[in-house]
Amino acid sequence: MIKYLSEDRCIQCNLCVKVCPTSVFDKVADHFPTISRQEDCQTCFLCEAYCPVDALYVSPMLDNTNEPLTVTPEESAMLGSYRQAIGWGKGRSSTASLDMTHILRDLVEDDAGPRS
């Protein structure tokens, strides 16, 4: 569940408001967006993928509505780690080209699906 929006990093581009499939954020004029409906977050990490300045942190835990909306120093160090993993952002290239799923698939399935 979304846990944190860094007010220091945020450049108020509102991309997260736009891309969040479940409309968790609200746009605020001349201000960073608010996390208005945290309980609607589906933990898909996509806002992080789109945030150009790594200002968002999504906890992998499904239920953290009663935790404070801050990050620990360890979590802070992981800001942007999803974007890095998929190779999005300036100066990076998409890691989709490094995908090795086909190699794994050949180990466990044939043309019609899992070998039994």
Binding site: F45, S81, Y82, A85, M100, T101
Partner: peptide, 10 residues
């Protein structure tokens, strides 16, 4: 596996 399913490991 890590290359194939980044969000699983995230």
């Amino acid at each position: 596996m890590r290359r194939s399913q980044p969000n699983f490991f995230l």
